[in-house]
Design a protein around this nucleic acid. Structure first.
Length: 827
DNA sequence: GACTGAACTATACC
DNA sequence: ACGGGTATAGTTCAGTC
């Protein structure tokens, strides 16, 4: 029977049937029903011929390629057909053969068998089958389409797969059509995904070592904690089970009943999912979460990803880490801090105890805690849903992947999904040896940073280049495909000071990469405008996504794992940006303004006795003289600003300054205040001192505050929390060549049976010791250890260093004041 | 054992 | 393996006298 539906694709998967590729797509129709679409797919790759290959020879090779067969235990693979096309490869016109293969998995093996002298390259055998499918059929993720097809009901065609799927409808795709924009908009407004958040609590932190004590679920119509522990008299949201096995089975049943589109957790790829897997195995339960009854699939990689067929499992932490953290101020990306920042509400506080030692009220608190975590995860997912949606639509990869891939992969996927407009065949992914070669090339020259003259300044204008590196790439046409082997007529010469190949040349004929980037920049401008006109989550997310993508394009070209890696283009981008900002600084100076600081794409200058209008006129003039799409804008006007010296020496420190604008808002960069590896005492003291100086324009009350705090510090009135030092553990303990204080702290934690993981913040303080010890690490104590804070250490390594060079700007030597030498002369 | 510079380490800026 | 280079600053480590 035939049927026509409006369909929103959510999850993609594929399987083999009789050696051929089948694609299954799970999504929603416009009445909220869960639908699975099945489709066959003929995969292909390209054989590109060298320039000048005779058509007759191409025909011969075509015939020979068509006879290739590959046989393995699994399947027989053949060539379905071949087609000759005029295409482009790296912006050059080429003749290319599109080779259709019965099974995608054998694309690479078939391509390997083609080794003619006339063949320039074989490409696109290394592109993911889902990506290829989306490209070919235009069934874009999270985008409404009109689908017509045949209703499958126990059909033999797909091996009866429709029978085991928990869906309302299963269709064999016959036609995919676009919907009218208005209709799409209407459907979009009606749709919101059914999200279910979950979180588990366990006795042991090591995966699978202890039992799962409880599992919380939080969704639109469900707020529950499942447990098999003391819960006879607990809260009504707690549901009791006989044992761990029963509880896990109930969890699976709830998922089946709720039928969420999205199952989300916080760090669930790294903890909750693998833990559930381990405990299910231990208890001989099948964790059949997939809509076909399948278990979660764990993909290999540095971090494993847990996929559930038909339900999109999102580990919110990973999306926030890779794509969203730039918007956040949080020093760590833990659930508590991120939720506090985005929702204004954090985790519940509880005292950690072995579960065997908990009393009834402690269990009750634990249930609250567990539910709260799911609730926060649910609310966070709602909060950033528009960002995930926009990223997915713009990049056109499935949501599951979008929430896990890094910025570089996003850029690459965006490129792959937009090559068609340029008739381009995709470049290959680098293999291991090539990656090694690229990595061994070392660094190339980067940005320009102007050394400031230390001091307190007033009336400061800050200009900055809008999306500087992107605009340089577009303006100067810098990419792999436009890099010339040697100098050509009317090409662009770029000097690279630090490189062996000092001069390189780029074509002026626009390449697809800069053109595509220009499109991104244009779209960003357009959607930023739309956002300004109509401020909502959607327009904001769209504008931000384009901004992030455009900004990542430069890093992408310099990234060793990129298909379109081009070290020369990246180096030229940095070199031309440097040249451009230095020239701009010179122009500003020529106009009589004093330039006090500059870093990469920003310039700080003093107004002195001039009016603001004068500076704005200058900005306009500079903009007129900038080439291509490059542009300079007013970042902000600041009332005051302070630049200090480096710790040792009299020279001004780069990347370290504090500013205050007309509204009294501070902008602090580089100072210890913004560094999380300094203790709160030093950070807050420095922050207050900077604020006083910037607000009042003098150092008097700042100095008074400093003396007051030192006094209270010496009297040991400072709380332990204030003097804790937090340092991130970046690798396994055994790999540290230098045994630093935080390594010692981590070792102590391990000995105390506390969890020690890569990436965690280790907390410790420096204590007084009985004997004299020369190394800092010999005085390390954990926060719950007995001991007094080390007066000498904190004074000379935290408090004084945090304020010393600030007061030096005013000619004040705080060390002498502390030791009592000069106190009288100052007061 | 004190001193010194290099190496290692973490974190920030753009 | 899973964006880039520039920069500051702390602590340890290895060598010198």
């Amino acid at each position: 029977m035939q049927k026509e539906i409006n369909f929103l694709p959510l999850d993609y998967d594929y399987f083999d049937l009789n050696g051929k590729n089948c694609i299954k797509i799970v999504g929603k129709d416009d009445r909220g029903k869960r639908v699975c679409l099945l489709d066959s797919f003929e995969s292909f790759f390209w054989v590109i011929f060298k320039d000048g290959t005779k058509e007759k020879r191409i025909e011969e090779i075509k015939k020979e390629i068509e006879t290739i067969k590959i046989e393995s235990d699994m399947r027989k693979t053949e060539i379905i057909k071949t087609e000759l096309h005029n295409k482009k490869f790296l912006d050059k016109e080429v003749r290319a053969l599109k080779v259709y293969v019965t099974n995608h998995k054998d694309c690479h093996a078939v391509a390997d068998q083609i080794g003619y002298d006339e063949v320039l390259a074989r490409r696109e055998y290394d592109i993911n089958i889902i990506t290829k499918y989306i490209l070919e059929k235009k069934l874009l993720p999270l985008t409404w389409k009109k689908i017509s097809g045949e209703i499958l009901n126990n059909s033999r065609e797909f091996g009866g797969i429709d029978n085991i799927l928990d869906v309302d409808l299963c269709l064999k795709i016959e036609k995919i059509e676009n919907l009218e924009e208005n209709r799409k908009k209407e459907l979009d407004e009606k749709f919101s995904p059914n999200i279910l958040a979950f979180d588990i609590e366990t006795d042991e932190f090591e995966i699978g070592k202890g039992a799962i004590l409880m599992i919380s679920l939080y969704g639109k119509n469900i707020k529950k904690v499942l447990t098999w522990k003391k819960c006879e008299k607990s809260q009504e949201f707690v549901e009791c089970f006989k044992d761990e096995a029963d509880m896990i089975e109930a969890f699976v049943e709830y998922i089946k009943k709720i039928k969420p589109d999205i199952l989300t957790g916080y760090f669930s790829d790294g903890f909750d999912m693998p833990y559930l897997k381990a405990r299910a195995e231990q208890n001989n339960i099948k964790l059949s979460l997939g809509i076909d009854g399948s278990k979660p699939m764990f993909t290999r990689g540095k971090i494993t990803s847990a996929g559930i067929f038909g339900i999109i499992h999102i580990d919110l932490f990973r999306f926030i880490e890779t794509s969203f953290s730039q918007y956040l101020q949080s020093e760590t990306l833990g659930l508590n801090e991120v939720a506090l920042e985005l929702l204004g509400e954090g985790k519940k506080e509880i005292k950690w105890k072995k579960s065997s030692k908990m009393n009834e009220s402690e269990w009750s608190n634990f249930f609250d805690y567990n539910l709260q975590d799911s609730m926060l995860t649910y609310k966070l997912s709602e909060k950033i849903w528009s960002d995930m949606l926009e990223f997915t639509r713009i990049i056109q990869e499935p949501l599951f992947d979008i929430t896990r891939e890094g910025m570089s992969q996003h850029v690459e996927n965006y490129i792959l999904h937009n090559l068609e407009k340029y008739n381009e065949i995709a470049e290959k992914r680098p293999v291991h040896d090539e990656i090694e070669r690229r990595r061994n090339l070392g660094k190339y020259g980067g940005a320009f940073v102007l050394q400031p003259l230390p001091g307190l300044y007033e009336h400061i204008f800050m200009f900055d280049f809008t999306s500087m590196y992107s605009s340089v790439i577009v303006t100067y046409n810098l990419a792999k495909s436009t890099l010339l082997e040697k100098k050509e007529k009317d090409s662009l010469k770029v000097d690279l000071e630090t490189e062996k190949e000092k001069e390189i040349y780029f074509s002026k004929k626009p390449g697809f990469f800069p053109l595509m980037l220009n499109e991104m920049v244009e779209k960003r401008k357009k959607y930023k405008g739309e956002y300004k006109k109509n401020e909502n989550n959607m327009t904001k997310a769209r504008s931000n996504a384009y901004k992030l993508l455009a900004n990542a394009a430069y890093g992408y070209q310099g990234f060793f794992g990129a298909r379109y890696y081009c070290r020369e283009a990246a180096a030229a981008t940095a070199a031309l940006a440097k040249k451009s900002i230095i020239e701009t600084i010179e122009k500003i100076k020529k106009e009589g303004f004093k330039v006090i600081y500059s870093d990469t794409d920003s310039i700080c200058m003093l107004l002195e006795k001039r009016s603001k209008e004068k500076a704005l006129e200058l900005l306009e003039k500079l903009n007129k003289e900038l080439p291509g799409i490059m542009g300079l804008e007013l970042e902000e006007f600041y009332e005051r600003g302070i630049w200090v010296t480096k710790r040792d020496g009299e020279f001004g420190a780069k990347k370290k300054y504090a500013l205050i604008n007309e509204k009294g808002k501070l902008k602090i960069r580089g100072f210890e205040t913004v560094r999380r590896d300094w203790c709160t005492l030093a950070r807050e003291l420095q922050n207050k001192i900077l604020e006083k100086i910037l607000r009042e324009g003098n150092e008097k009350s700042a100095l008074e505050l400093f003396i007051k705090i030192v006094k209270s510090f010496k009297e040991r009135k400072i709380e332990r929390e204030e003097i804790l030092i937090r340092t991130q553990l970046k690798k396994p303990l055994s790999e540290y060549k230098s045994i630093t204080p935080h390594v010692i702290a981590a070792q102590k934690m391990k000995e105390a049976g506390k969890p020690v993981n890569i990436g965690m913040l280790v907390q410790y303080f420096i204590a007084e010791t009985r004997e004299k010890k020369s190394l800092v690490r010999e005085k390390v104590k954990l926060e719950d250890e007995k001991g007094e804070y080390n007066l000498d250490y904190y004074l000379n390594h935290q408090i004084i260093p945090a304020v010393d060079n600030i007061f030096q700007v005013f000619g004040i030597n705080v060390k002498e004041i502390i030791s009592g030498k000069k106190q009288t002369t100052l007061f």
